[in-house]
Design a binder for these strands. Structure first.
Lengths: 367, 367
DNA sequence: GCCTCGTTTTGGATTGATCCAAATATGAGA
DNA sequence: TCTCATATTTGGATCAATCCAAAACGAGGC
């Protein structure tokens, strides 16, 4: 006791080597093991001991070494998150939802932006294995080999797929009912009197695309419009919306309404209409998907199938926590229900308003 | 050699305990140390040895254990990134820029969303210390105590501030010249004939706010307009823009132009004008800051001071790499030059176009 | 006073890599 | 063939925690 009082005195000049459990133990007059138990909030430790140890921890300015702990323990309280486009505000909101849950659970997460490259994604996943994360939240890149799931299972690595999924059930998944969302959009348009309804976007074969296309197909058939126009496949960017709608509007018969794969496309499509001197709502109704915050700020405000990204993020993170706590448990699919957020991009507009839209015929995505 | 050929044979049923350097060493007939050198791509190892070891690594399905490595090594190839609103597309783009550089450098990053809470930020930073990250990219939360920098220095933790900074130089920082950006905006408006120019937004006392206000102040004075209207302080959200401009337009004298703290505010402000039956550009010119992708998609397309978030992210990450490689080096400030992206939100509009904007008087941020 | 039984505490082994100083191998020149 | 410098390789110590079986402690009951 008296013997160890000098070395760990107040602030050491450079604190070159860090304070360890051993130092705390010496200072508090207990063993290394006991200190470890205190740190992990074990109920085994007597209250009096606990407070004494905690005081020593504070006094010596101890810093827990997670690397060392991870070497022996089974958990790292660490997660890997993969999205394919973090610059898309949809994913921003989703990541915020994930972060809010993880923060409560004392987890931290590695984030990677795969840019929809399976190779880049694979590299990150391998790195996550090296880091020994407790689990993954994965929004698989386009073209990801479904064998990836088997691989992860072989790694013994819990993985919750988000938004898109690959492979065959059972797997853990959190997302939204895209099929229902598109059905709501089609039904809404039909109720407004539309028949020539096109679905714009999605070429890659992943679940989120298939579900949307399926929803479109089913809803159109249910409305007896099965053979009227159809799906235009392509990338799902702003630019694709901008260009895609311009092509569509030059075809015969022209669609009277377009449902877009996501809001970015829809916003691009509205700009594309302007470029042609056409008016969103009047000349062609537009519906987007996601209901990102920007949707309310366009002119006209965009009607969109709200998919609640923040909630999806929360649900995914919670599911991951459950799976980590119980690795053998039954796989779960958490499917949120989308809701059509009606704004004004399907409203017809009085003819005398056209001039305004036509004022910016040379608007492009770049200027 | 023959002795160790059985245990690490092909796939073990459950691979319960992992393959270690020791196993590789035995398989390749070298020592643990040599394998370690191969893993770290040391030039010391002979080519023939290297290939043999690499073959063994592949054959046994070895997985590098970063936790164990971190225990001894000085680097973890890990970084902490803190932003205050990941749902803001500006930060999405910035994080994408960070990620692209880190990926090239073989780094991975922990991401946290502080939600502008200094407590939450502090908790994350402490966690990062426990994880022994090599450095931090920090966009400090509003109200962060400048002593934080001293604290981090005491921790011996390299930290690059991004976009905002606290404390006093020298420190590492990557951002943009907000002051110049606002000056560009003011000059542009004055050239268009505006005199009653208001700056909208920013109440907290951080560098990015001060710089903007300073830029506004200087530019207005340089133009001889120093006492004409001024700065309206407040939060910097979409909603604040929406509400702020409505208040402004009911005052006398009314401003003829508003420069907004960021694009979200500017987009909200344009919606606010509509709500009043006013026309952006005609009744009041609007300029935003950031030039997020959405800026091009509004109607009218928003004129904005482009701050290039992706590049800022890249520069910040590169600076962090430099600082980690050379902790004692001179602190650096990387200041990018903003550029005014002129679109149409300052154009006057023919009167007969008004009807269209007035069609959506009840538009709000929620619907 | 001794014996349980439950509560606390403990030491030694273990985790899987890196560091470092020293040992060994290799090759050129004398 | 020997020497010396250079190129490779190595074993032991070390990093800082957790796990686990066993020991110490303390309170009641007989």
């Amino acid at each position: 006791m008296a013997e160890s009082s000098e070395p760990p005195s107040s602030p050491r000049e450079s604190a070159r080597q860090s304070v360890t459990l051993q130092d705390i133990a010496a200072h508090a007059g207990v063993s290394r093991s006991t200190v470890s138990l205190v740190l992990r909030e074990s109920p085994l430790v007597a209250d009096s001991t606990r407070t004494r140890v905690q005081a020593s921890i504070k006094a010596l300015g101890y810093v827990y070494n997670r690397g060392a702990a991870a070497l022996r323990a089974s958990h790292t309280f660490t997660l890997g998150v993969v999205v394919y486009d973090i610059a898309n505000p949809f994913f921003g909101a989703m990541v915020a939802g994930i972060d809010s849950v993880l923060h409560r659970e004392n987890y931290v997460s590695f984030l990677a932006n795969s840019e929809d490259s399976p190779e880049r994604q694979q590299r990150f996943l391998e790195r996550m294995r090296e880091q020994r994360v407790d689990g993954l939240l994965l929004c698989p890149a386009e073209g990801t080999d479904p064998a990836l799931l088997t691989q992860l299972m072989g790694w013994n690595m819990p993985c919750v797929q988000v938004l898109r999924h690959i492979g065959t059930p059972p797997f853990d998944y959190a997302g939204t009912d895209f099929e229902l969302g598109v059905r709501q959009a089609v039904d809404h348009l039909v109720a407004l009197g539309h028949r020539r309804i096109v679905f714009l976007g999605g070429e890659a074969e992943h679940s989120a695309t298939r579900a949307r296309h399926q929803g479109y197909h089913d809803a159109m058939h249910a409305q007896g419009l099965g053979e009227v126009l159809g799906i235009v496949r392509g990338p799902v960017t702003r630019r694709a919306g901008f260009e895609g709608i311009q092509t569509l509007m030059q075809e015969t018969p022209r669609p009277t309404a377009v449902i877009c794969h996501n809001d970015l496309m829809a916003l691009g499509a509205m700009l594309g209409l302007q470029r042609l001197g056409l008016i969103p709502g009047e000349d062609c109704a537009i519906i987007g998907t996601d209901d990102i915050e920007e949707a309310a700020l366009s002119l006209p405000p965009l009607t969109s199938v709200a998919t609640h990204p923040f909630s999806i993020g929360e649900e995914a993170a919670r599911l991951a926590m459950r799976r980590i706590a119980n690795p053998g448990g039954a796989r779960e699919q958490v499917i949120l229900t989308p809701r059509l957020q009606v704004r004004h991009s399907c409203d017809p507009i009085p003819a005398h308003g056209e001039a305004l839209y036509r004022r910016y015929p040379h608007a492009t995505l770049d200027a």
